[in-house]
């Protein structure tokens, strides 16, 4: 399966990066596993998608209300607005943040921060099922998400675990494995643990 090229890195640090989408409004779902390239060709960096947004390409630009009644009396809304204003595809940009949760070097996946961040303008791919399964076999990346100091960290991890569990041959066994790991990491924070476990079992 060929992994889909969906955008390129437009801002990067060791812990997170921003991807600009090649196609307006076409972002991977929240919590998806994506990977970005690096000028060090041996290195590819993995991240979880969060904070998907669409706005003006121009700094300081702001979208304005465009739907409603036209001067000829017809009304247009939603998707029709994009047909009526084809230039929007060129002036709006969809982008999203990704939390770095590991990297791959020489075929080996490592659940730590990479030695280098992704390189700006390098491609970003959506990971296929095989890669997601391979990356999430071990739960070491849980710690990086929980400690990321993101307001949506629990939501992000819960979604990522659910994606991963759905791909496993034995989903129940993976959920138990993930649950045990979460219980270990959150042994001092029962409230957070309870919310996450509920996300996995709902």
């Amino acid at each position: 399966m060929i992994e889909q090229r969906i955008g390129e890195v437009i801002e990067a640090s060791s812990t997170q990066w921003t991807t600009g989408a090649y196609e307006l409004l076409n972002a991977p779902p929240f919590g998806s596993l994506i990977k970005a390239g690096c000028y060090d060709n041996d290195l590819c960096i993995y991240g979880l998608v969060y904070d998907i947004r669409t706005g003006s390409r121009d700094l300081g630009g702001k979208a304005m209300v465009r739907g409603g009644r036209r001067y000829d009396g017809s009304e247009f809304y939603d998707g029709q607005i994009y047909s009526e204003h084809p230039d929007l595809a060129a002036v709006l940009q969809t982008e999203w943040s990704a939390l770095v949760i590991g990297y791959e070097r020489a075929g080996r996946i490592i659940h730590y921060l990479p030695p280098q961040p992704p390189t700006v303008h390098y491609s970003v791919h959506l990971c296929d099922d095989d890669t997601v399964e391979r990356f999430t076999q071990h739960c070491d990346f849980f710690r990086m998400v929980l400690h990321a100091n993101l307001p949506i960290a629990d939501e992000l991890l819960g979604t990522a675990i659910r994606h991963a569990a759905a791909l496993q041959a034995n989903r129940r066994e993976y959920e138990l494995y993930a649950g045990r790991e979460l219980a270990r990491l959150l042994r001092d924070d029962y409230d957070r643990l309870r919310v996450l476990v509920r996300m996995l079992t709902s």
């Binding site: 994009y82 009526e84 084809p86 230039d87 595809a89 060129a90 002036v91």
Partner: peptide
């Protein structure tokens, strides 16, 4: 330079 096409095949190039 701007090209914008309206109607059945909306398109733009900026």
């Amino acid at each position: 330079l701007v090209t914008i096409q309206y109607g059945q095949q909306p398109y733009s190039k900026l």
